[in-house]
Amino acid sequence: MTTPRTAFVAAPVLMGAYGVIRMLDGLDGSRGPGFAWSLGHLCFLAALVLFVQGFAAMRTMTGGGRLSTVGLWTGTAGAVALAGQFAIDLVVGFMSADRGAMEEMFTRIQDIPGMLPVFYELVPLLFFVGQLILVAQLAARRVLKPWAPVLVLVSALVPLIGKDFIPLGAALLLVAFAPLRPVRETAAAASKVPVA
């Protein structure tokens, strides 16, 4: 199983890889379907799995209180919604011959009642809310730097400017998460008694 430390590095890296692949896929003026579309979406799905693992580790690092539990489950709910969105995108890519066919299929899917708020608009935002709750708690406990929540917030906002900024958001998360270590290592370090 991936260690928390690996998750805190690999999740932003895979998220950034999705952003880079997405930009490369659009160089010809059209994104998907094809290998780049599928690879990018698989990278992001893998990142979501690792982010959820990281959220669980963050909750442990905070001491597992009520607010951190809310952060964990809020972030996880958002991650599940995002995973659903990216899984839909993957299936649409596999089933479509060209971008025009993809657009038609997306329109049919998104016309299903509840599909947009659950998978595309509202529930996915919980991923960022939960992450911010957990990071803010770790910053308050001085496990993370005081500016780490600011980086996480900016990371969540930069894709709203343009999705080409996703790699920048991923880089900000790498910086914010840099001080985190596996819980076992943290506990071991805290239990050591200095020798006089």
Rank of each mutant, 00 (worst) to 15 (best):
T2Q: 08
T2N: 04
P4L: 07
A7P: 06
F8L: 07
P12Q: 09
M15A: 10
M15I: 00
G16V: 02
G19L: 05
R22N: 12
G26Y: 09
L27C: 01
D28H: 10
S30T: 14
S30W: 12
G34K: 03
A36T: 10
A36M: 10
W37N: 08
W37E: 07
G40R: 07
F44T: 00
L45K: 06
L45M: 14
L45I: 15
A46N: 03
A47T: 09
A47Y: 08
A47M: 09
L48S: 02
L50F: 03
L50G: 03
F51Y: 14
V52Q: 12
Q53S: 10
G54L: 06
A57F: 12
R59V: 13
T60L: 08
T62K: 11
G63I: 00
G64Q: 07
S68W: 01
S68A: 13
L72G: 08
W73T: 01
T74N: 02
T74L: 14
G75F: 04
G75M: 05
T76G: 07
T76L: 11
T76E: 10
A77M: 12
G78S: 14
G78A: 05
L82V: 04
Q85G: 09
F86Q: 14
I88K: 02
V91T: 07
V92G: 08
G93V: 11
G93H: 08
R99Y: 11
R99L: 13
A101F: 01
F106L: 13
F106Q: 10
T107N: 01
I109G: 00
Q110W: 06
Q110D: 14
D111Y: 04
D111T: 01
D111N: 10
P113F: 05
P113Y: 05
P113M: 07
L122Q: 09
V123I: 15
L125G: 03
L125A: 09
F128L: 08
G130F: 09
L132D: 02
I133M: 15
I133C: 11
L134Y: 05
L134S: 12
V135F: 01
V135W: 00
V135N: 00
Q137W: 05
R141H: 05
R142C: 04
A148Y: 06
L151T: 02
L153E: 00
L153N: 01
S155P: 06
L160H: 11
G162K: 01
K163Q: 13
I166N: 02
P167G: 10
G169Q: 14
A170V: 14
A170P: 08
A170Y: 09
A171P: 00
A176R: 11
F177M: 04
P182T: 11
V183L: 15
T186M: 13
A188S: 12
S191G: 05
V193T: 14
V195G: 07
